[in-house]
């Protein structure tokens, strides 16, 4: 038996995507579509503020609080924590991001911020840039690492090296998105001031 396999903890089966949460996700997305279709001001503001608040808070909390704690934990403790956190993140994050961006774009259109002649148009373009950076980090690095680490942890004997490599990617990218969220806070408060 190799050294890797000998050190590896025996994995317990768990759900990568918590299926029980999917009806709730469908309900939230349906709510966003209805708010857009009806041009319902309160619905759009609710989706944007609630989604944006959660997105920013989770990114900041994970990037600056959970990330450093994870780095200091032993590998078995990291694995146990990851098995419980990542499936939830896999459902929560795409839902609140879609909710925030879809509602936000409609609000920007309603308020005329998308118009190039609007004095606050530059701030909206700046927010597009920040979201673009976060989207690339989340979709190209963070998301794939999350899913891959969950598949690794479901194996009878997970490879600690693979888990560590993927978790390192998660910790660093979560830190970067945390910093980008600070920029989002500046832009959004500037937009509505």
């Amino acid at each position: 038996m190799s050294a890797v396999a000998a050190d590896a903890p025996i994995a317990q089966p768990f759900e990568i995507v918590p299926r029980k949460a999917l009806p709730l996700v469908a309900l939230v997305l349906l709510g966003v579509v209805v708010a857009i279709a009806r041009d319902a001001r309160w619905g759009l503001v609710f989706c944007h503020v609630v989604g944006g608040g959660l997105w920013t808070a989770i990114d900041l909390f994970v990037g600056f609080i959970v990330g450093p704690i994870l780095r200091s934990l032993s590998v078995p403790a990291r694995i146990e924590f990851t098995k419980r956190l990542m499936p939830k993140m896999l459902v929560i994050m795409p839902t609140i991001v879609t909710m925030t961006l879809a509602a936000g774009f409609q609000l920007a259109r309603q308020d005329g911020f998308l118009d190039t002649s609007n004095p606050r148009h530059a701030w909206v373009v700046a927010s597009f840039c920040v979201v673009g950076v976060m989207a690339v980090i989340a979709l190209a690095y963070l998301g794939p690492a999350n899913v891959a680490v969950l598949f690794e942890l479901r194996k009878p004997q997970p490879d600690p090296l693979v888990v560590q490599t993927l978790m390192r990617r998660f910790v660093y990218t979560a830190g970067i998105t945390g910093v980008m969220q600070v920029a989002t806070l500046v832009i959004m408060t500037r937009l509505v001031s």
Binding site: T116, V125, F128, C129, G132, V136
Partner: peptide
């Protein structure tokens, strides 16, 4: 990631002119 950067640039470029 580079492909996504290109798409993001394209969307921002188009949206900036709306």
């Amino acid at each position: 990631a580079a492909a996504m950067v290109a798409v993001a640039l394209g969307v921002i470029f188009n949206a900036a002119y709306l």
